[in-house]
Structures are given as C-alpha cells and as structure tokens.
Write a protein that binds this DNA or RNA. Sequence first.
DNA 1: ACAAAAGTGTTCGGAATACACCCATGT
DNA 2: ACATGGGTGTATTCCGAACACTTTTGT
Lengths: 231, 231
Amino acid sequence: MKTTYTYNYEMPSVAVDCVIFGFVESGLKLLLIERNLEPYKGMYALPGGFVLPHETTEEAAQRELLEETGVQQVYMEQLYTFSQPNRDPRGRVITVTYFALVNPEHFNLQSGTDAAQARWFSYAQMPQLAFDHYQIVNKALERLRGKIKYQPIGFELLPRKFVLSQLQTLYEAILEMPLDKRNFRKKMLSSGLLLALEEKQTEVAHKPARYFEFDKERYEVLQQSGYNFEL
Amino acid sequence: MKTTYTYNYEMPSVAVDCVIFGFVESGLKLLLIERNLEPYKGMYALPGGFVLPHETTEEAAQRELLEETGVQQVYMEQLYTFSQPNRDPRGRVITVTYFALVNPEHFNLQSGTDAAQARWFSYAQMPQLAFDHYQIVNKALERLRGKIKYQPIGFELLPRKFVLSQLQTLYEAILEMPLDKRNFRKKMLSSGLLLALEEKQTEVAHKPARYFEFDKERYEVLQQSGYNFEL
DNA sequence: ACAAAAGTGTTCGGAATACACCCATGT
DNA sequence: ACATGGGTGTATTCCGAACACTTTTGT
C-alpha cells in the first residue's frame, strides 16, 4: 500500500523539533546538531525531522531523539506548534515542538553515530540557529522556568541518586537566581518526595553528603489525592 | 520558485479547532456547531477548519472563529496539537487547537448566518462530539482552570463593566468551588487591576452594586515590572 | 591546622483563612 | 415590612524569608 503523491510547495508538511535540556558540568545546557544538509548546512539546529504517516507527533519526536542522540525514555512534553508560512525556505512546514529533559547518566554523545554531530551548549554560548529555532528555544526556556516552580521535573535532569546541593545548583541554574540553602532543604525534604539513602559521598575533601532518590511512586500517589508540589 | 517534492506516503493535512468559552446565564458554556457535512453529519463539533497556505494556524483559528460565529478580537491562545493518525476518518489530519474566551457583550448568535448552527452548552449537558473533540474540550478546561489562578483572564469573559459578584460567580463556575466573599473582594481590590466606576446598578431589588472595569493598561505596566497576578 | 562543603533552627512579617452583621433598594 | 444581594473588619494560622555557626572529611 505504498502510494506516491505529488504536491506543490503550498501544501504544509509537518515536522517535529525537540529542545533537549541536560544538566552538564553544573550548568543547564541544550543539545544542538550541526546540519549537514541544505538549507542552513553547517549551522546548528534543534534535532527533529518529518512526521511519518503512521506515527503521532509525540512518537516522531521520540524517534528523532533516539535516532539523533541515542536517548530513550525521557521526560518529554509538547511545547508549541510553529506555523509561520515562511519559516522553512523549502516550503510550508509546520513544526510541532517538544521539550525533553535528559539525565546525563543515560546519555553519551558517541562518535561514529548520528549523535556525533550533537553538542551541548549553554544558552549564553549558543551559536546562531537555523530556521526559527532560536524562537523555539526561548519558548522552551520560558516553559521550563514556569514549570519547575510547581512540578518536580528537576529530578529528570539528575542522575538517579544525587545530593541536595546538586539539586539546588540545578534549580539555581534554571531559575537564574540564588536560593537559600536552609529554606531549600526544608522545602524539599518536607515535600516527602525524597528518599534518603544510606549511602554518602566518598573521597570528597569535606563532610560527605547524603545521597537521595526521587520517590516517583510516592509522587504519583500524592498527585492522585490532589497534592501539588511547589517550588 | 515553485518546487515539487515527491513523498512516498500521504502527507498529513493541517486543521485548527477552537474551544470557545463564554459566560452565559451565570454559567461557563462552550460553543459547539452542528455539522452539516459528513463525516459526523448532524453531530456537534468544535468550530474549526483547514489551514490555508498563506496563513498561520493562529490566523486560521481567528478566521474560522469569525466565519462561524461572527466574533473578532478575542483572547485566544494555542492549546495543543492533536495528531492521532486515525483521528479523522477522511485521512491524516493533524489539528492545532486554540482556546478562546469571548465576551457575550460582543457576541450574538445570529440566525441567517453560519453562526445559526452554533449553540452554547455547559460541559455537563454537552452532547457527544465528533472526532476527538471531547478530548480537546477536556484539555481546554484543564488549561482554563490552571490559568485562571495566576492570570487575570476572567475579565475576558465578562462585559466591560461588571460587578464584583459577577466576577466571583465566574471564578466559582470555572474552579467549581465556592469562594469566600470577603476574601475574594479583598484580593481583587488589592490587586490594583480594578477600576471603580461611579456608576451603580439600577432597578435591582437590593442595595445596588458598584460597577468596575478591568484596568488592562495597568496590568501591562505591572507585568513589565515583574508583577504576577494570583487568584 | 586548614580548607571546603554539609548540615541544622529560630525569628519575623505578611498572606491566607474563617467568620457575621448591617445597608440600600424594590416590591 | 420584608426579601435580596451588597458591602465591610478582625483574629488566627500558616508559610516564606532572612540569617550564622558547627560538623566532617581530605590534604
């Protein structure tokens, strides 16, 4: 049941693009790919591609993410749909964008794969981007900042076990403001979403910190009963 | 520079659908249109249609809203993009949805126009809907409820001048919970976003209430300086 | 011993909540 | 005079913000 259709430049096609955030070297970074095809060959762009006939846009985003970076099973959420008629010089392309939070533990940019062309950039050091991707990144950042205040999504960016100061550094990086250590700990610990592990840091030149895990099951239970995480 | 591309599969087409909320007869209602074409002929559905080649999805939504209901210049916001491959029996249609808040003052369902087939329904009395429109309505309600707590969008649903009890009734209808009168007034008045008018109600069989206006300019100024409305 | 980050409590002010009666008008 | 919704103040509780010192480890 393969069919061939011809269409002229006026018909929209539908693509997806992903804004992938990672917390790398204590900073919030996003993943960009160097384009090796025209248009915008050689420029950096968001990972993405066209939606296939049998898949939802969500599935397309997951597939592209996997193909281009090797990452699977990440927190992903629909961001916004961009539809300026001239946003792609090849013709009318409407793009449904997603933002994803990846945990560096499950992630390695491997040479020899498609992901080899991918690099982490901080927002400040980001190069000029292809298409309207700069706009998309801005929208994603806005959403991430809004979201982190009332949903515990920060954990998606950290390794499974982490230390409270890492979590605080992450929040400070996203919100771009310093937070008070005692108040931050108080709020996090009292949320009941952190599972204290026995394990502590070793080989650090200071008092070793306790490791914690995010208690996802607990969060889901609490959510059912109308609980809402905040800050 | 017209180009022709060939694809091996059917390309999706792109539509828009609008969830239009109105505050009618002291209740939150949404506007549905009876379909007079197959598929789902005779069923109710959200107003919407296909995106034209030269317009953004936002423009398409505004245009459809105007064509089908005669309303212009309303608060409108992108909601979500739905892309289940089988959501439309005619073929692959991806729909970008919007939600809109209309002020009944600027709005009349006129017979003799396209809008004649439109009717207000409360969520509870809503008939079965065509396509996946029920899902879309649920998403819109969720968004409306989330949004009204931290953005002063309630005013978009009321006439230009209104009375505080109307505003409270509206909030109660959206949030589906009773609110304390004194606390509600305190918060609203202290927000600085309400402009007290000299005018009061007339011909009411009780103490006449003062009219207020939403001070939109003030809100925009406050927003610039980092202010955030809440509840 | 020193450097470096972990860990810990209390005070204060402002906001959220709960709550009940008098007022102005039309009938 | 009565019914109807408009309009008002206070006491209490809870939460966010500010703030400094001791502990544990490695070097």
